[in-house]
């Protein structure tokens, strides 16, 4: 069959390019998702922190909140392809012709863009944690920071993992728009290969399957991690069940 032969030829002839494309796509998507999550955590914590009693800090906090809100709206409200052009060429414009290295630019753009989505995901995650968790921590004297680090964030991370996985998968696909500034991810190489072999359909079919293999593998992998994080359903009884060592004998039904 002609189609299969063409595909085979593409794989054999262009595997270095395809491999480099897959590698860069994964690298940008992974780094961008992790950095985006960090941005999300940072902004989420800032936005949900109680306002300080100190007027200076209070004002600063409010300004910071406003900046974050503007950032989130702008980066969620415009296409990443346009953001890539504006940031990349904006830098060139501002520095009179200097350009950023392409791969770092790609990572930067995906990070900032993902960060805007993660900011909302994390904020929702923090808000949805029961107030009792905060109060339990406060009642034993833990500070807001300690409460966040030890009690809230671990629960938030577990709860938002499905949404984070989703962002990762979206990023694998959406890095393709970075070809507008010439980042050498998978879609960029597809264009190069097509211009050499004139087999547009066959080339993009190969690339399509490669994208799917990446996203499907990641989805399965993260599902597995999710299940692991669910924790064990069982626990080991420590010592003997009869709790003969208990200093207080529990008298049932006593009022």
């Amino acid at each position: 069959m002609a189609f299969l032969r063409d595909v085979y030829t593409i794989l054999v002839e262009y595997y270095p390019q395809l491999l480099a494309g897959v590698k860069n796509t994964l690298l940008i998507a992974l780094t961008g998702t992790v950095a985006g999550l960090l941005i999300g955590l940072l902004t989420g914590v800032v936005r949900t922190a109680p306002l300080s009693g100190n007027p200076m800090l209070r004002a600063l906090h409010k300004i910071l909140n406003a900046i974050i809100a503007v950032y989130v709206e702008i980066f969620r409200g415009t296409p990443m392809m346009v953001q890539a052009m504006v940031i990349y060429w904006g830098y060139a414009f501002a520095t009179q012709g200097n350009t950023l290295a392409l791969l770092p630019s790609g990572i930067l753009i995906v990070s900032i863009n993902t960060g805007a989505y993660m900011a909302e995901i994390v904020r929702g995650g923090i808000i949805s944690i029961d107030r009792g968790q905060f109060e339990g921590a406060m009642s034993i004297g833990m500070s807001h920071t300690q409460t966040m680090l030890r009690v809230i964030i671990p629960q938030v991370l577990r709860n938002i993992l499905p949404a984070v996985s989703n962002e990762f998968v979206i990023n694998i696909k959406d890095t393709s728009v970075l070809n507008v500034i010439g980042v050498t991810e998978l879609y960029y190489f597809a264009g190069i290969i097509k211009r050499q072999n004139f087999q547009t359909f066959q080339t993009y079919m190969v690339v399509c399957v490669l994208y799917f293999i990446m996203t499907f593998t990641i989805t399965c992998l993260l599902r597995f991690v999710e299940r692991k994080l669910e924790g064990k359903d069982t626990y080991t009884i420590f010592g003997s069940q009869s709790s003969s060592k208990a200093q207080i004998q529990i008298r049932n039904g006593e009022g």
Binding site: Y235, I237, G239, S240, S243, K245, A246, Q247, I248
Partner: peptide, 8 residues
């Protein structure tokens, strides 16, 4: 132990 929860 005091509250009888050592096993758990």
């Amino acid at each position: 132990r005091k509250v009888g929860m050592e096993p758990y």
